[in-house]
Amino acid sequence: MPGIAIRRIAGFVATLLVAALVVFVLLDLLPGDPARFILGINASAEAVASLRTQMGFDAPAWQRFGDWLWGMLQGDFGISYTQGAPVAELIAERIWVTLPLAGVAMVISVAVGLPLGIAAARRRGRPADTALMVLAQIGIAIPNFWFGLLLALVFAVMLGWLPTGGFIPWQEDPVSAARSLVLPGLALALPQAAILARVMRTALVEVSGQDFIRTAEAKGMTRGEALWRHGVRNALLPVITILGLQFAFLISGVIIVENVFYLPGLGRLVLAAILERDLVLVRGITMVLIVAVTATMLLTDLLYTLVDPRVRTGGRP
């Protein structure tokens, strides 16, 4: 087990290095001179050149890459030239909106998706199953920003239970901060929950045909008990894999939903940075998001190892 964990963590670090290289190459070496952009089209060539030197753009590429990596390890992501503030600070302010939002969405999607999937599998072929799966199909088809608008219309505008958007910082009013995350969290979670429900249903239906379920019934369980005690854990294996992949989609969803609900998170920040060509800021946020996604994949990998003894003890899965 420790051996596998070490291998997975080594893989995690290697993935981050490769990702950093790709981000660097894409944003730093591609055409488009940020110095020219900052100073405007009418600036003199000398002014552009001196800004380039000042920002370190004329050093060799490998050196800039190294400096950038080393800086990030020390928490220095560079200075945003549009906001005039350290990128690390900007990210630190916003991440406490984005991470809780993604976390809330993840929790809701699991809490809604898995029970629905199990319920559908238990009623396979019956009207409840069909109804649930049609609902899931709709849930997958509807884009989350539209869901967000709909939720805001019903729960904020019509019922007035929750705010339509905006965010009061946690330190000022934690309750209303949490309340502002409920609707965007739901908007993000429902399409994911629909996918999870489908995967869970399929996996459990598959498992329910396995011999060891019959063994459990032979031991003296009802079909429902056998599925619950032996089926669900086995069916979770494919679900865990999907869960890791879903987090990446969740992050891209966050960028859109934050804009819909006017939340001051990383999504809004990165969108603004892209529009203003603030490459340093884009690069920094991208790396933070990559770390979040890769770390989630690492966690699901380790979780998988924990659930499945065949991976742990080197057997055939």
């Binding site: 011999d211 060891f212 063994t215 032979a218 031991k219 032996h230 499945d308």
Partner: peptide, 20 residues
């Protein structure tokens, strides 16, 4: 009834036990 009075052994030993 099965729990208390009947034991079962099935054909496929490879799949009849819960792998986890």
């Amino acid at each position: 009834l099965r729990a208390e009075r009947v034991g079962f052994v099935f054909q496929e030993p490879m799949t009849a036990l819960n792998p986890l």
